[in-house]
Design a protein around this nucleic acid. Sequence first.
DNA 1: CCTGGCACTCGGTAGACTTGAGTGCCAGGA
DNA 2: TCCTGGCACTCAAGTCTACCGAGTGCCAGG
Lengths: 357, 357
Amino acid sequence: MTPPPDSVPLTDVDGDERALNARRAAILEAVVTEYIGTAEPVGSSHVASFPGVQVSSATVRSEMVALEREGYLVQPHTSAGRIPTDKGYRFFVDHLTGPGVLGPSQRKQVSQFFEQVHGEMETVLERASGLLSELTSYAAVVVGPSHETASIRSFQLVGLSPVHALLVVVLSDGAVEKRTIDLTTEASDDALARAGTLLASHLVGRTLTQPWAVPKSGSAEIDHLVTAAHRAVDSLEGSMEADQVFVGGPARLAESFDAVETVRSVLAILEQQLVVVSLLRDVLDRGLSVAIGTEHGFEPLSSCAVVVAPVSIDGQDLGAVGLLGPTRMDYARAMAAAHVVGERLGQRISGGHDGRH
Amino acid sequence: MTPPPDSVPLTDVDGDERALNARRAAILEAVVTEYIGTAEPVGSSHVASFPGVQVSSATVRSEMVALEREGYLVQPHTSAGRIPTDKGYRFFVDHLTGPGVLGPSQRKQVSQFFEQVHGEMETVLERASGLLSELTSYAAVVVGPSHETASIRSFQLVGLSPVHALLVVVLSDGAVEKRTIDLTTEASDDALARAGTLLASHLVGRTLTQPWAVPKSGSAEIDHLVTAAHRAVDSLEGSMEADQVFVGGPARLAESFDAVETVRSVLAILEQQLVVVSLLRDVLDRGLSVAIGTEHGFEPLSSCAVVVAPVSIDGQDLGAVGLLGPTRMDYARAMAAAHVVGERLGQRISGGHDGRH
DNA sequence: CCTGGCACTCGGTAGACTTGAGTGCCAGGA
DNA sequence: TCCTGGCACTCAAGTCTACCGAGTGCCAGG
């Protein structure tokens, strides 16, 4: 029906989708901005009244037809306004919205938080997830640094009962891990201590991921303890990652989505911490700071957008922070908040285990 | 209008509210049972068709009027059926429903769980909260044993950096707690070790709540470390309670309540672990196993019912399990599930830190 | 190539009507 | 005395209609 020229953007830079001419971009921006604010389909006359759009509503309409044909907008039904598609949000995030700034009161809130917060790293991360959630009113996720590179600082076997011992490992990053060991035969405190010392001499200074040979002692009793401890150390390695995930303000999901079923399924996802971590890592690894709708390839979250920011300092990976909200989220604010909190958290973590007290 | 005899229950045992005559009880039971199943107001003809009710719907109607006057039922509006009030549920729970039994598949699920689960206490409690939630499809809370009576088994100071040390305490119940200590002056590993040994000799065998005097050493450097550690130990005491709360299946709240706002506020409560613990404790202390609506005096949860069961063995308090659902929850099943899981958990906890592996 | 105008679509709202579940009350009967 | 069937009444919810208005697509004129 329509001749080919219609489908060619005016300032097509490379490929077919990369750029939109300025007018269409302005219209898209208006639609996204308005829809984020009102959650209602945006009509051409609303758009035409935007300061950045200096054409009549009729022109806006014809441009919107083009934007819809190219996949940036959709109409829920005829005779309704348009709402952005994931692709529309993507263009908005990539080209139309600045890095975003926090309001003064929010900046103050962040500063106060980092001045006042104290205590163990876990506490700080946990409370930071709450902060991020409060700043944005979305659900927040904070992932702490992995223990992969931390070396073992202390290694101890503590007897709990005649047939139970506790392996306690302190890492150089301040993490403490433990594992109960069942002893098939009773062990004396003395044997435990000797096995502990033997193992400590072999293990202190290594990381948990480095393989190690089981040292031999002269005594069968102690060898028995040592092999049991060896198994326990191996099992430590796998289970440590999950400890460092903190979810803040999951209750806010109920504000973000009106469909109860969506709330339920997203909450169910957040319960699976491993999934959340890998989602954030995946998005970060792809060099993105925002994943919209199906971009993260994770079906149950297709109605969500994920904003992530690394927690790092000098390129060193110390974790990540993330925000989970509806695709019609306020990307600028969310990105700004995630960025700021991620950055301050990185400074805090690297700057000492407990700056003040 | 109506003469006094109308308002006098037929078999009034003591006080004015204690008992209902058998017919009214049967009618109340029918209403509650039906409403729990359907979530819709129950009419007199439905009730009349219940096997336990051998009277006509007209008679049921007049009895329902009486039950409404006495506060056991309410009508959402004229010409609708009745729904139970909190008082109605209370009577149902106290007098009309048996202890409840789990279905065979659920019993099997519980058995399998306790056969297969292994690992640290925290892991077991966490997963038990998931089990309880799956069994009932309500949100579950598991509170682990308090560390109040546990004695200190090991006490260690580990240097992390020249100006940071980590205090690591192992308790007799297998719990490990840590606290970072800022050192205002640098301390040698040797000084740390000596301070640690000194403190260990004073503290091992005590509980965390017992007050203790700061031991004096000859050296000012060590005294300095010792007082810093003293402060850290004191701060440990207060923060340990919160660690032992596990919430399972919060996403199921979205299934239990249809109002999004209710979901949001209940989720927000569950985020505050201290509140949840004290709620459960409070209900248990009052000797109840169920708190319905406003009975727990906690306004934001007035549309919820809380089912609790102690985790104990031989009268020794090892914690509590709880379920949070709508007031129209299936009390019999919930109580049965909480009871069983609480009991098995008690056996597990007291029976060893890790029965199998 | 933009714009105002125009006919058209269609979701949402409001009112009238119907339906049906449920009630309260009452008179007759065991 | 108490239960029951009958009856008139109430009211939420569903259906149908009409209508409004926001919004669109298209077109002719500037």
